[in-house]
Nucleic acid binder design. Structure first.
Lengths: 256, 256
DNA sequence: AAGTGGTCTAGACCACTGC
DNA sequence: CAGTGGTCTAGACCACTTT
């Protein structure tokens, strides 16, 4: 029996509450394989015909499911070669979650540069109440905390604190150097695929410490970005709070 | 001859630089009808089969084109009834471009309320240099300028200045009351469909005037949002600069 | 040449709407 | 009931990549 057959009435499906189109079921099965790690970032998937045969549906149905996953950025299709699980290393994917731009830039994506990071601190500790809420963990769980300053050639851009739940990053040690592109790091080392990111933006006054780090006068207005990165299975895998100088940089957003 | 036939070699298309899939051509033709006003917001389109027959392609090709337009929010498909040009009045579309949320809101879309507007001023004048750049107009062109304060039940939320190029809103008069949902107004009265919105966010200090209007202490940090609304044909049809209080509100963004 | 994804077609059946 | 969009299939041909 194929993976997608209706177990209650294979030949003549009755009216069911959970009725779903075949391509939705096919997509769910394939997304589950991404979540479980059966299909890992960078891996070549079986061909459309092979998947279709395995699931007992037509190639067109698998194509529709893969098309949706392509739009979502989960897979990358290459004509003549095959379909691959998306990696967070492509430039387009690198900048997918990066919206800060120098003020003089007209074209957002063209001259965009990724700022270098400089660590101020990293530590491990018990999860605070807020961190327990955010990650859905208990007081016994540990978290990793990073504090870093990111700068471009023209000087400091932003200060940020980054928190990771320990349970998703088990073999983490204190001497691991978190790379600039952390989402690629999560992807290749832990198979964690960041599906989306929720951000909250506010204008706040820089504290004396932050103002000094960012080379700003005290009480300068800075842009606060509270970000939670959410994995494919819906769990929050990263919490980040950034304070960005707002005189030389801005946050660009295109709503469609 | 159908609208989509290749004029150079109908039977055996040679390699052409401008080669485009049929569904792309079909989509372009249909989008052009939206731009020209031949198809206006709210209007019922011909059926997929009718469009396919007119363009000389199969129904599946028209469907693929319409699917893309549906994703883009240009048309709305209703099973059993037909395909309609999208209107800006649906709640989902209303909040498509509205990202400001009270701080206590957990669910962004649930208890979201649209703030009421109160006019402070409206006037017509010659386009400034910056306005000429933004709208691609000359010094002879006139612009409409609006200044308004938007408030919720709890008090003022934001102050904003809104600029419209006169040439796109010809029969505008000073006593027209710009409604709360301006994009629906553009759509129903001028057939202007806003396809996307580009925003730049910064943290700035409130001037004395703005601080008083927003009920804030002087020099409070406020969120500045510089927005340009872009119509289907790529022209900028609205420029807006908002200053939003950042103590009770935040700007939410979901990146996928 | 073989295998992959990309496009296009034709036809079947289903679910929903309106008359 | 007819007409609409939604799903699913099967098959053809094309463009591209690899062997």
């Amino acid at each position: 029996m194929s993976a997608l057959e209706n177990p209650t009435s294979p030949t003549k499906p009755a009216a069911r509450l959970e009725a779903q189109p075949l391509y939705v079921k096919a997509r769910n099965i394939m997304v589950d394989r991404l979540i479980s790690g059966q299909w890992r970032p960078g891996q070549l998937l079986p061909s459309e015909f092979a998947i279709a045969a395995e699931l007992g549906v037509s190639q067109g149905t698998v194509r529709k499911a893969l098309d949706e996953m392509t739009v979502q950025g989960l897979v990358v299709r290459k004509q003549g070669r095959g379909t691959y699980v998306a990696e967070a290393e492509d430039k387009s994917i690198l900048f997918r979650f990066y919206r800060l731009t120098p003020n003089d830039d007209q074209d957002a994506s063209a001259s965009q540069t990724f700022p270098e990071s400089c660590y101020l601190s990293k530590s491990q500790g018990q999860a605070s109440g807020q961190e327990q809420d955010i990650f859905g963990i208990t007081a016994d769980d540990k978290v990793w905390r990073f504090e870093r300053l990111r700068s471009s050639a023209d000087g400091p851009i932003l200060w940020e604190q980054l928190v990771l739940p320990g349970r998703y990053f088990p073999d983490f040690t204190a001497d691991i150097h978190l790379p600039n592109n952390v989402y690629q790091f999560y992807s290749t080392n832990y198979g964690i695929i960041v599906a989306k990111v929720n951000e909250q933006l506010r204008a706040v006054s820089a504290s004396d410490d932050v103002a000094e780090l960012l080379n700003l006068p005290p009480d300068s207005p800075v842009l606060e970005i509270d970000r939670r990165a959410i994995a494919l299975d819906g769990t929050v895998v990263e919490w980040r709070r950034s304070l960005c100088r707002s005189d030389t940089m801005h946050y660009r957003n295109e709503l469609k």
